[in-house]
Amino acid sequence: MSVTLPYITDNFDSGNIRVLDASDPENIALEIKQDKDSDFYQWFHFKLHNTAHIKHVMHIKNAGQAAYVEGWDDYQAVASYDREHWFRVPTSYDGQTLTITFIPEHDSVYFAYFAPYSYERHQDLIHSAQHHLDCQMQVLGQTIDGRDITLLQVGEVAEGKKSIWLTARQHPGETMAEWFMEGFIDRLLDEDDGAARALLNKAVFYLVPNMNPDGSYRGHLRTNANGVNLNREWQQPSIENSPEVYYVRQKMVETGVDMHLDIHGDEALPYNFVSGCEGVPAWDDKMHQLQEQFKATLLAITPEFQDDKGYDIDEPGQANLTVASNWVGNNFNCLAYTVEMPFKDNILLPDEIVGWNDGRSALLGRDTLSAIYQIVDDLR
């Protein structure tokens, strides 16, 4: 009996894998491609054909040199037959090789580092949002590859209203960030949601669901088409190297900022948490009070959030001002947080089938609107 050889491809939006050897279904050798002009890599996304009812053992050989090797510990890859429903699959890591073992039920299956958020879905998100009377879609500029840098302005500008900014997916492989934004936008535009309606009476929202569409489409983990880490560009962005930051920052200066959330994902930590800007020169008691108030509110709203585990707090005056939340917090003397979600599971509320996933990310986005509602009156 002959065995049909597996066929593996990454020739699609956000695809990333290199096939080294696929001659034996139970000993497939793969590696992840680096971001263009960069040493970063960790995001993978590929399709496996000719697969039904055959055991496949796929070894990602260069996992041990990835950007965040601690991210592989207790990690399970995700798979999908229809690109809508993603589930966790058996995955192991021996310190060098990440191994995925799976017997597909159908002829074709996708695998990814986390539930992908496609460029087409991004287009659907921003273009459906513009149908709402309170929403305007603005193109701030173009990326290196010529894609639009798109902003959604939600709410009518008026005297006394706050300016609240949410940016997401500076690091393109952190797809949970745009799932978060989808949930947030869906609720903010819900005319039957009292908290959303009340917020739009008090604030204008400036939303960038995808800061890095080039890196997203190219299947990068962390950089844009020039190999630039956008979240290290905020002090001196340029149209040549980091137009995404340049144009967004320019718009922030125009509108002012009373609150900023920059949405991310963390490879290693199995928690949802926030990272503040305590180390910026402009840090004061008001900023401290707002940070604590926001965290306390989010803790009360959802068990998916916690504040015991996270990043070390910067010493006074030692914050890295090339990072978005630090630059914004310092320049606008406002509440500015980096929001982090896990690639793994939320260990405090685990789900063995899906782990932390697209749906839970979207729900956290919806819950975050409630937290903003609780503090909007105190922002200035």
Rank of each mutant, 00 (worst) to 15 (best):
Met1Cys: 10
Leu5Asp: 11
Leu5Lys: 15
Thr9Cys: 02
Asp13Glu: 03
Arg18Ala: 13
Val19Gln: 01
Ser23Phe: 09
Pro25Met: 00
Lys33Gly: 05
Gln34Gly: 07
His49Cys: 10
Asn50Cys: 09
Thr51Ile: 05
Lys55His: 10
Ile60Lys: 02
Asn62Met: 04
Ala67Ser: 12
Glu70Tyr: 11
Asp73Ala: 12
Asp74Cys: 09
Asp74Gly: 07
Glu84Val: 14
Glu84Gly: 13
Pro90Cys: 11
Thr97Tyr: 05
Thr101Cys: 12
Phe111Glu: 07
Ala115Asn: 11
Pro116Phe: 01
Ile126Trp: 00
His131Gly: 13
His131Ser: 14
Cys135Arg: 02
Met137Trp: 05
Gln138Thr: 15
Gly146Thr: 09
Gly146Glu: 07
Arg147Gly: 00
Leu151Ile: 06
Val154Gly: 00
Gly155Ser: 06
Lys161Trp: 11
Trp165Val: 04
Leu166Pro: 03
Leu166Ala: 05
Ala168Tyr: 02
Arg169Tyr: 08
Gly194Phe: 12
Leu199Cys: 13
Phe205Ala: 01
Met211Phe: 08
Asp214Gln: 10
Leu221Lys: 04
Asn226Arg: 06
Gln235Ser: 13
Gln236Asp: 14
Ser242Thr: 03
Gln250Ser: 14
Glu254Met: 07
Thr255Leu: 02
His260Pro: 02
Val274Gln: 10
Pro281Tyr: 12
Leu290Asn: 09
Pro303Ile: 07
Gln306Glu: 12
Asp307Thr: 13
Asp307Cys: 08
Asp307Phe: 05
Gly310Ala: 10
Tyr311Cys: 06
Pro316Tyr: 07
Gly317Lys: 13
Val323Ile: 15
Trp327Phe: 15
Cys334Leu: 11
Cys334Thr: 09
Tyr337Val: 08
Asp345Ile: 03
Leu348Gly: 06
Asn357Phe: 03
Ala362Thr: 01
Ala371Met: 09
